[in-house]
Amino acid sequence: MISISNLYKSYKTDYNTLEVLKGLDVEIEEGEFVSIMGSSGSGKSTLLNIVGILDEYDSGEYRLSGRLIKDLSQKDAAIYRNELLGFVFQSFNLLNFKSAVENVALPLYYKKISRKERLKLAEEYLDRVGLKEWAHHLPNQMSGGQQQRVAIARALISDPKVILADEPTGALDSVTSQEIIDIFKEVNNDGKTVLIVTHEKEIADDTDRIILLRDGVII
């Protein structure tokens, strides 16, 4: 599903070049539940951004579901993100002025699905994460755990092949964190590939495989 070979990425400033990823090789099969661990600065977020087609890489090769992801136009990148990927962020990144159900429905808006249909589907997905009663609440009326569950429902609604989560439990207490991880497990059991970036050992231990990054290489 995700096939990365010899991946290099560096950030250039005016004075120096910071090499973040130095010849990375990663292979993730369809249906795997994988976590990426590493200290800050190890390049784990950069890796996730590249996998999420939010960022570009300098050299090497990245294939997502068999397609080569390189030098895409912004529009093509947007379409791949919409169809293949679902994102979950540390700070939830919900739109504050939209209710839970509208937030969940947003990816379908960019798929040009009618409003009626996408809201119906969004309610189903909210039900799956146990928030049916909260469908018409605004994000700031909900707890962190609830907001993250809304975000997960949003990531799932476009039925992507891969779910990418960047520190999904970073802003949550341990009980809530466990609830969120349980949801990810369920999602994985439904056959989706799940990739979680985390620095918490307990979270990583719940996944099938841990990829450990240090200074831009896998150890």
Binding site: G52, L54, Q74, K75, A78, I79, R81, N82, E83, F87, N93, L94, L95, L106, P107, Y110, K111, R154, S158
Partner: peptide
């Protein structure tokens, strides 16, 4: 900016 970033991550094209 942040909202636009979220939208882009969810599949918003530059045109939209």
């Amino acid at each position: 900016t942040r909202e636009i970033g979220i939208r882009k991550s969810l599949g918003a094209t530059p045109g939209s």
